[in-house]
Design a protein around this nucleic acid. Structure first.
Lengths: 227, 227, 227, 227
DNA sequence: CATGAATGAGCTTTCATTCAT
DNA sequence: TATGAATGAAAGCTCATTCAT
C-alpha cells in the first residue's frame, strides 16, 4: 500500500516541459559540455535563484562560452528542465525500500512518510527552486501540477483501500482527504527544509517531524486501536 | 476559543513591509492620484503578475504620466505594499459571524475554518500574488513569514487549550500539530482558490472543502465522541 | 596705483549674465520669498555644487513650494547669477582701505595682494563654484572671462606705470606679464582656499602666502634695490 | 636639471584613475571595437564636453550598438580614463629635445618651458576636458591633484638646487615658489590653448608666451647676471 | 562545435518645467 | 502670489540571443 503523504512537485518524473529539447550531443566532447552546463546550472540556480540567474552566470560557472549554451538549450527554462530531469532519479526512489512486509498500516505509513521527507530534505534546494519557478513559468506550474495530482491520486487510492479494509474513516472522500493530507506533509517539508535554512530559529527535529505528521495522518483517518 | 486552522499568509494584516513609504499626499488631487495608482496597480498585478508588471503599465492603467508614479512610491514593491495594505481590512475581519455562542469545539472549528476559507476566496488573486512575490522579494517573504508564525502560534494555543480540556490528543506537540494542520488548510485554500482558477477541471465544492478540512482537523486532534 | 595681482573671476562685478532677470517682486512678501530663495540657493550651491543642485533642493531649503521658484527665476543659472550679484559687494571692495599713502611699490603690492587673497578666502566656496560653473555654462565662462580681462588690464596698467617710473623690467610686455602674474596669484588663491578645504595636508599659512606671492611678483618685475 | 615651470595637471601621465577597467578584449575584433569606442569617445568628448556627452553619442560615432559600450567600459568615467591613458604617452614625453647639454640655467629653463607649452598645446582640448571633469568627478580631481603635486615637487627640487648653486633667491621657500611659478605657467597654457580657441581676440603668439614666462620665472628666482 | 563579441529592445528613474487649485 | 502635483523627455543599463570567426 501507499498511504504516503508526498507532496507532488517532486517524486513524480519532472518530465521536461513539452518544449522540444535540442538534439542530444553526438560527440563525447558535446556530451561533456552539456553535462558541465547542467551541473553549473544547478549550482547557480540553487545559489542565486531562478530569476536572478543569468545565462552567462551558468556558462561562466561551467567554464564555457556564452554562445555554447544555445548549442544545447533553447532557454533558461530548458536547462532547468534538464536539471530537474537529472535530479528526478533520486526524487523518484526515495529508497523507502518497500519495507512493507508488514500489514500494519501505521508502520507502512510512517515508513512512507519518512522516505518522502528524507527525499525532500536531500533535494530541498531544488524543491524550493521548483516552487519559485512554478510561480513564474506556467510550463513549470503545469508540470508541478500534474505531478501533485498524480501523488494525490495515488494516496487517494491508498485511503480508499484502507476504508475498504475498515481501517479508515468512511465518511471521508478519499480524494479530498488525500489532497488535504498530502498537502499537509508537503507544506511541512517545504517549511522545514526549503525555507528552513533561510530562517533563524532552531531547525526542526527530523524524527519529531516524521512522528507528528504520521500521527496526525493516522488520527485524521481514524486508524483504530492505536492508543 | 480559536481552534482555527488558517495558515497565516492571508488572514493577518498584510501590513506593509517596513519600507519607508513616501509622504502621503496633502492635497485632494494628490489623494485622488494616489488612489488611482493603487487601484490600477492591483488590477495590473492581478492580471499580469508581479514580475510582468511594468511601472508604466500601472501609470497607463491609471491614466497618469509615468513620472507621477514616483511621487507616491519609490518602487514596485512599495505599490504592492500599498495594495496589500488596502486589502488588509477585509482580510482581517473575515466576519466569521461569531457563531461561538456554543462550546462545541467542532462547531467552533467549522465556523472558524469556513470564515478563513471565505476570506481567502474573496482575496484569492491577492493571495496568489503574495505567494508569488514572497518567492522573489525577501521583504515580502519576511512579512508573510511573520504572519504565518502568528497564526500558527494562535492555533497552537487553541490546541493546547483543547488538550487541557481533555478534548484533544495529548501526545501531540501543540506547535507541531498547529504547523501541520494550519498548513493543511492554507494549502487547500491556495490550491482551490489561488490556483483553482488557472486550472481545468471542476472547481472544488466549497462546502465539501469546509467539511473535509474540519473533519480531518477534528479527527487529527482526536476530538472525542464525535462519531 | 594698483600693482595688484588679482585674478579676475571675483573682484569685478559679477554682473548677471545678460539673461533678462524676471521682474523684481513688488510686494513685501514677494521680496521676502525671493530673498529666501537666493539665500537658500547659495547655501545649497556651496554644499552640493552647481550640477548636483536640484531646483527643489533650493525651494525645500527655502521652505517654499517648487513652483514659486519660477516666479522669481527662469532657471538655475539665473539664481546663481543672483547669488553672485549679492556676493559682489564684498568681492568688489576687498577693503584694502587704499592705505597707499606710501609710494613704496613693494608696500603697495603687498597690501594689494593681501586684500585680494583675503577677499578670495572669504568667498572661497563661491569662487570654487564659479570655477565649476564656468566649465559648464558658457554664459558664466564669458562672464568670468570678462572679469579676468578687466583685472589683467588693470594690473597691466600698473605694470606699465612702474616701467615708466623705471621700477620694473622694461623688457616685459605689460599685458603678458600681467596675465602671467595675475594668473599666478589667482591660482594660488584657488588652490589654497577653494580646493584647500577639500584636501588633506596642512593648510597654507596665510602670511607666508602673501609674502611669497608678493616677493615673486616683485622679483619678476625686477623691483630695484629691494635686497 | 629640471628648472621647469609646468603645473601638473597636464604633463604627468593621466594614468587612469584606479577604477577597475573591464577585461581587455581577447579577440582581434574586440580590440578593434574597443579602439573604435575610445577614438569616438575622444572625438565626442572634445566636441561636446564631458557632461553633454551621452553614451549613445559615443557608440553612434563609433558605429556600434549601444550595448557594446558596456562590454568595455562600465561608465562614462571609464572611457574617459581610457582616452586619457591613450593620450598619456604624448603628454609624458614632450620631446623637449634634451637641449640640456648646457649648464646655462636660463637656457634650460626656456627649453623646459617650451617643451611643456608645446605638449600642452598639442593636447589642449584634452587638457580642457580634464579641467572640466576635475570639477565634477572627484576621481579625476584626485588624479589631477596627485599629478600636480608631483610636478610642483619636481620643480621645487630644481629651485632648491639653483639656490644651492647660488643662482636663485635664497629667501624663497622652494615649495611655495614652485607652487606659484608652476601654477603661473599652467594657467598661461590653459588660457592660451584650452580656452584660447573658445575666445575671440588674436591668439597668443607662442614664442612670446615662452619668452615672457621664462623671463618672469627667471626674474622671480633672481637669476643673476642675466641682463 | 566552440567562442565571445555585438546587438538592441526594454525598463527604470530623474527632474526641470508647467499648471490646476 | 503660493502651492505642490503632474508631466514626459531623456538617459542609463541589462541581458537574452545572434553571429562572425
Amino acid at each position: 500500500m501507499d498511504t504516503t503523504a508526498p507532496e507532488d512537485s517532486e517524486k513524480a518524473p519532472p518530465m521536461a516541459p513539452s518544449s522540444p529539447l535540442r538534439e542530444p550531443p553526438t560527440t563525447q566532447r558535446g556530451a561533456r559540455t552539456r553535462a558541465a552546463l547542467v551541473k553549473a546550472a544547478r549550482k547557480v540556480f540553487e545559489r542565486d535563484g531562478y530569476l536572478d540567474t543569468r545565462l552567462t552566470d551558468i556558462t561562466k560557472e561551467a567554464g564555457r562560452a556564452a554562445g555554447s549554451f544555445y548549442t544545447y538549450f533553447a532557454s533558461k527554462e530548458e536547462v532547468l528542465a534538464a536539471v530537474l530531469l537529472e535530479a528526478q532519479e533520486d526524487m523518484l526512489h526515495p529508497g523507502m525500500g518497500r519495507v512493507q512486509d508488514t500489514d500494519d498500516p501505521y508502520a507502512v505509513l510512517e515508513a512512507s512518510n519518512r522516505a518522502y521527507l528524507e527525499a525532500y530534505k536531500r533535494n530541498a534546494k531544488l524543491m524550493g527552486l521548483l516552487e519559485q519557478v512554478a510561480q513564474v513559468e506556467p510550463e513549470f506550474r503545469e508540470f508541478r501540477s500534474r505531478r501533485t495530482d498524480a501523488f494525490i491520486r495515488r494516496n487517494a487510492r491508498g485511503i480508499a483501500d484502507l476504508q475498504a479494509r475498515g481501517v479508515a474513516d468512511r465518511e471521508l472522500d478519499p480524494m479530498m482527504a488525500s489532497r488535504a493530507l498530502s498537502g499537509m506533509v508537503s507544506v511541512m517539508a517545504y517549511n522545514a527544509f526549503a525555507l528552513g535554512e533561510k530562517r533563524e530559529g532552531a531547525p526542526v527535529d527530523f524524527e519529531e517531524l516524521v512522528t507528528t505528521v504520521t500521527r496526525l495522518w493516522a488520527n485524521a483517518l481514524r486508524f483504530p486501536g492505536h492508543r
